[in-house]
Design a protein around this nucleic acid. Structure first.
Lengths: 251, 251
DNA sequence: CGGGTAATTGACCCGGGTCAACAGCAGTGG
DNA sequence: CCACTGCTGTTGACCCGGGTCAATTACCCG
């Protein structure tokens, strides 16, 4: 498998947005290893109504934000893949307005806000990276609103898969044209605002057209251009190839 | 009407989240007045693809973020009412991944990021307020994803109207059980992922049931509890009554 | 081998979309 | 003052994408 993914991926992730020194990398790794928490698959990491615990870095596994309506309808709000950072500032608010759950078994580093603040104060580039990461997270949230609000089932699923593939690729978690894919069809349904039955049928369409292969926990996209075309995928909102400027002084 | 609303509402808005000194209020007002920009109704304030200009404070009128698909489908992503702040950090990214458009004629204060950074550095409570505001903005974005992803037309529209009313009320822009409402049914459709025709029909249902009155540019909610019940509205995500570090002086 | 989760299929239905016509009203210019 | 224009709201007829319900069929794992 991918050895880089087995290390602490935060540095890797930040380096999608900024450039780190060796010292910064070491510092981050130490911090992340100090406060490891393991959560089994399908268990909540934090629940709506609870006071926010701390910032977190997802080291291994996949997780998601979600929200549930009183009658049980459920919407996935965001997907976390290894390296994703979350809730750097969440502890400013007094309670969570949504939950975060593990999809697979998961290892998270939970870092207190103070600790993170200090790191950011001492290393402007880290602050820059985290800030950028937060902005991208919001941009993704907006794209999801667009996705469920305007696109057809076929487009939604294509778009969702495109995004995942691009994000995984950006942190080195793809292998050519394929990648791990631990989501069930029910998960895809929750993320796209569809039902599992319809996701199943739509996936069959996509398979039949040769746009993708999806079996077990493996996703393969033989023709990424075709998949992108199916939903007019425009990766600009992921802000993956931004110009970098040396942040001098304070953010 | 509400005289405070006619002044510069940023201070007011921030005071929904933190407590400001008189000096801070004055400072903010001066800053906001310095760089006024007026945009006529239905014109863009900034467009997807452009480099982010600066942070902005909406002083008068309503505006929205939106995104358009190649074939013209359009999704409203966020609604701005007077006092709303936006894009405090957006200039970190190199280009806008969505547009912002004026709904009514609008007055915005455009503030450079540097200026805002300095203000925040000198006044921690302002930073606190802005940070909190940003977190709430993201929370609202998540709620919109849930709204278009899981709720029925009837619930979506009720929820949308509830949110607007709560937000307006929080900045003193309601008058008893009614408020200004400059959105067209087409706007509501864009925001809720429905068509204007269906919005029309659903609004008629709501009117028939006596849950709301909506004519001209005026919204009236005779029975807010009923409207909230229609969509199980839970305002927690607006984080309006958070604990504050200091007790506030008045109001 | 048994139990549980995930994927698949079929039959049927409905919420909301589409298309098209029309009404109400504000603004604008003559 | 009215005719013209354009936007917004309203209505009707019809249709379809995707939901619902329920039964099977793989799998996976101990």
């Amino acid at each position: 498998m991918n050895t880089r993914a087995l290390g602490v991926p935060l540095a890797l992730r930040l380096e999608a947005y900024t450039t780190l020194s060796e010292e910064e990398r070491v510092r981050i790794n130490r911090m992340a290893r100090r406060s490891l928490r393991e959560v089994p698959a399908r268990r909540d990491i934090i629940r709506e109504g609870e006071p926010p615990r701390s910032a977190f870095i997802l080291l291994e596994g996949w997780a998601c934000r979600y929200k549930t309506l009183p009658d049980g309808r459920r919407q996935m709000l965001a997907l976390f893949i290894p390296g994703d950072v979350g809730d750097v500032h969440a502890s400013i608010l007094s309670q969570m307005d949504h939950s975060i759950g593990a999809i697979t078994a998961v290892k998270v580093a939970e870092v207190s806000r103070e600790e993170l603040e200090q790191l950011m104060a001492e290393h402007p580039r880290v602050r820059q990276g985290l800030l950028r990461d937060e902005l991208v997270t919001v941009a993704v949230q907006r794209e999801w609103t667009l996705n469920v609000g305007q696109r057809t089932a076929y487009e939604r699923i294509s778009h969702f898969l495109c995004e995942i593939f691009f994000r995984l690729r950006a942190v080195g978690l793809t292998d050519g044209h394929s990648c791990d894919f631990p989501l069930t069809q029910g998960d895809i349904a929750d993320a796209t605002g569809l039902t599992a039955v319809h996701v199943n049928r739509t996936l069959q369409d996509l398979r039949r057209e040769g746009v993708l292969e999806l079996q077990g926990r493996k996703l393969s996209i033989p023709n990424l251009d075709a998949l992108m075309g199916a939903c007019s995928f425009n990766p600009n909102y992921l802000h993956l190839c931004e110009d970098r400027e040396e942040p001098d002084g304070n953010d």
